[in-house]
């Protein structure tokens, strides 16, 4: 059991362009996936927080029920299955329809997957806000949608910021599963580099360091933003975050 650091150095020099390409894709997928996932999460989480009111017209009630059902199904499916399975399934399922390449499919998968988690984060963010403010909105005649947009959601997002940021850190690592549909992110590159030099320990050592570097940078930046946002919670972001 030992790591040969000269070999590490050689591998790094020989394959630098592959590692960089991998990092680029990893960062791009993690960033875009988190961003679109966040937008999905806000919409879906907002819908999931809808109450069916006594005063709703039958049509409104029907629409709300359908939306609640669809969003609940979406969250159930995407949180209940591994992203790796989702990637393969969705890529091939829609290939005849969209004629897409694996990178487009990967982007959609990571966004949808993140969206499902974000939806739950946003929903619990909404639930953490005391009901009084929503009642005050109602009592001056604001609709649920207006209350959500102008009063509840801004606070929910702010309160949930630590968890939202966590999703980004998780995604940096979880993009690795997208290698199953040949996304050329960092893990994919690592597999092919190690596959040609057979130096598994040294190659994966480099990769581990790069992932650790990326997640550390992300965590530091997020901590800083969090402080700026003056998030009520004073819990420190944990370096080890649970994975999907």
């Amino acid at each position: 059991m030992k790591i040969d650091f000269t070999t590490v150095w050689t591998i790094l020099q020989r394959n630098l362009s592959f590692f960089i390409a991998g990092v680029k894709w990893t960062c791009l997928f993690a960033f875009v996936g988190t961003l679109i996932g966040f937008i999905i999460g806000v919409v879906v989480g907002g819908i999931r927080a809808v109450n069916i009111e006594h005063t709703d017209r039958p049509f409104v009630r029907f629409v709300k029920k359908v939306l609640l059902l669809i969003t609940r199904f979406y969250v159930w499916v995407f949180r209940g299955t591994p992203m790796m399975v989702q990637a393969v399934f969705i890529y091939y399922l829609f290939k005849p329809v969209f004629q897409w390449n694996s990178h487009s499919a990967g982007m959609v998968v990571i966004s949808l997957n993140t969206g499902a988690y974000m939806a739950e984060i946003i929903r619990s963010g909404i639930q953490s806000i005391d009901g009084g403010q929503l009642e005050a909105c109602k009592s001056i005649g604001m609709s649920f949608f207006q209350s959500l947009v102008y009063v509840i959601m801004p606070q929910a997002i702010k309160n949930a910021f630590p968890s939202i940021g966590n999703e980004f850190v998780v995604n940096i690592k979880d993009t690795s599963v997208l290698n199953v549909i040949a996304i050329t992110e960092l893990y994919f590159q690592t597999v092919s580099i190690a596959g040609s030099n057979f130096k598994y320990i040294e190659t994966y050592f480099i990769t581990a360091c790069v992932y650790l570097f990326l997640t550390t940078v992300a965590t530091t930046v997020l901590n800083y933003v969090e402080k700026k946002l003056d998030v009520a919670e004073n819990s420190n972001r944990k370096m080890i975050v649970e994975s999907h």
């Binding site: 009084g132 403010q133 009642e135 109602k138 009592s139 001056i140 005649g141 801004p154």
Partner: peptide, 28 residues
């Protein structure tokens, strides 16, 4: 909602909009 606007309600716990300033609470 039009009816609710014409019947004001003041709560025991104020229930102000915590993300807004004093002015914006009254403007929204």
């Amino acid at each position: 909602n039009q009816y609710r606007a014409s019947v004001g309600m003041v709560f025991q716990n104020f229930n102000l909009f915590n993300n807004l300033t004093v002015l914006e609470n009254c403007v929204l």
